[in-house]
Design a protein around this nucleic acid. Sequence first.
DNA 1: GATCTAAAGGCAAATTATTTGCTTTAGTAA
DNA 2: TTACTAAAGCAAATAATTTGCCTTTAGATC
Lengths: 199, 199
Amino acid sequence: MLGNGRKVKTAPMNIRENIRPGGRSARVQASVHKAVRDLLSTMDRGDVTIPLIAAEAGVTPSTIYRRWGDLQELLADVAVEHLRPDAPPKDTGSARTDLELWAEQYADEMASGPGRAMIRDVLSSTGTETRNAGKCCGYTREQLQAIAARADDRGEAFPDVETVIDHVVAPIMFRILFDETPAAAGQVRLLVEKVLPER
Amino acid sequence: MLGNGRKVKTAPMNIRENIRPGGRSARVQASVHKAVRDLLSTMDRGDVTIPLIAAEAGVTPSTIYRRWGDLQELLADVAVEHLRPDAPPKDTGSARTDLELWAEQYADEMASGPGRAMIRDVLSSTGTETRNAGKCCGYTREQLQAIAARADDRGEAFPDVETVIDHVVAPIMFRILFDETPAAAGQVRLLVEKVLPER
DNA sequence: GATCTAAAGGCAAATTATTTGCTTTAGTAA
DNA sequence: TTACTAAAGCAAATAATTTGCCTTTAGATC
């Protein structure tokens, strides 16, 4: 610990974990996020610009440039917020059906038009401060851990979470990103089948 | 801008399968590609702009805007060219070692700094929808098919190419894209082990 | 080879986005 | 309250992008 008592000048401040979360900052952030969501739902993604968002949010463009840096960072920020799950995976009574249901929903959401767009936004942000893609992966891990924990409580066998990520989540995501044909529900079930221990 | 206020964003022709591939077009394309490569190797990715590339390539910025549309499309175009394999996978004598070697090289190349950057460029190009990413996936498929065909010639058992993509390629790529920790060589070998039939 | 046609490139003006210096506002803590 | 300062606003300066118009040239036809 250096302890020289000098305040380190935090350069461009963290976007999400705000240093000063009080009133105005939060209001501006909410307003800008809402503007982005509204504009994206109305118009073509390629036509959305920062000056446009600023106008919609009732804010000066320079505010957005100073806080987010550029359009991609802002879009990624908004996307991550949307990709955060709002509830733990549904409890269907067994780990097998829990995972099947979760994986099918995951595949559907991510393969949808808005889903794909959000993934792209998250992946193309270069901000090293806030690992956006890492956060998404973290959300997924949490969801799977919840399923695994319930399986454990019930005394059911369940594979390691990393195994599920490698052999269920990764194939689904790979096909969404690189292939024109997303995995169908049947294929997802097959992937799940494969990682689960023998019945 | 008149009327409906919608930007028409004239589709920049097909970039790669050129309608007119003769002399000058080809020369300009080569020159621009080279400029991009040179600049990316010299400076920070965020500082590369189209006017800069144009100056380096000895063309007018508007030429680039007209042909590629924007920086992301151009970067994606250059990246795809680099990601195209220059030779079939090395023949090591057995399908197992062929696949092991190929997968380890694939993981290394893709996880490297330039590799990651190229993947990001390819994925964030929106112009031709999934075309660019699809091409990369196509290259991978071809490489795997070559290995599979050789296995077949030798009378060795070998899994379906799609299975290899799901359970070897996808996990490697997923971790590169979403996780901070790329798969290590040992983990890659483990993935390969899993998809190969029992010895 | 000569001629024609249109795609693609160059140039420059017009537009739009981004950066930046300075000022003002408003949370936070003494 | 007052002092302090991060964050927002404003506006001028800079840079990127779009566009119209003109020139060059690849590719086709004779």
